[in-house]
């Protein structure tokens, strides 16, 4: 039976290929520009890399503060890894109680070089602190709007718990 194909073949090669190639290239370029998977680097915790700005709160204070709670909390401390991520470095320290459970977390380092990081960390770090202390582990929901910071925080804390 004769078939009348509405063939694309009758169109020149350029017409056939150009739109598809342009669209595909555009799509690939777009995906390349999109943020990649979160790259976190766990820096060697024993090294003191001087390139990191660290105007954070406390440095390690082994004896803790004067509250009576510290009698049990702070019985042991474990320093977390310095975790470098897109916006800088986060490092936390885990305080454990007599049973070896997490009871308090202190932030040793966080990115504060620019206003945006400061703003994000100002609202995210307290939320993370409360979440991990309640959960007594490092696996909590990331703070919306501070996903990368949250993951770095959790990674640092996890390292501390693993090595406690």
């Amino acid at each position: 039976m004769t078939r009348n194909k509405s063939a694309d073949d009758q169109f020149p090669l350029v017409r056939r290929l150009a739109p598809a190639v342009l669209l595909a290239s555009g799509g690939v370029v777009f995906l390349a520009l999109v943020d990649g998977p979160e790259n976190m680097i766990i820096l060697n915790p024993s090294s003191t890399t001087g390139s990191v700005s660290s105007s954070s709160s406390s440095t390690s204070n082994p004896t803790g503060s004067t509250s009576t709670q510290e009698l049990t909390c702070g019985a042991a401390r474990s320093t977390g890894a310095q975790v470098e991520f897109k916006w800088g470095i986060v490092q936390v320290e885990a305080l454990l109680d007599g049973e070896g459970e997490l009871c308090e977390v202190e932030v040793l380092q966080f990115p504060d070089a620019d206003r945006r990081s400061l703003a994000i960390n100002n609202f995210a770090l307290p939320i993370l602190h409360d979440a991990v202390v309640v959960a007594k582990n490092a696996n909590v929901q990331a703070v919306s709007g501070a996903t990368l910071t949250s993951r770095a925080y959790m990674a640092s804390l996890q390292f501390a718990l693993d090595n406690s």
């Binding site: 694309d8 169109f11 017409r15 056939r16 290929l17 739109p19 598809a20 669209l23 595909a24």
Partner: peptide, 9 residues
């Protein structure tokens, strides 16, 4: 539209 256009889109 050619077939290839639709597929590409």
């Amino acid at each position: 539209l050619l077939d290839i256009d639709v597929v590409a889109i």
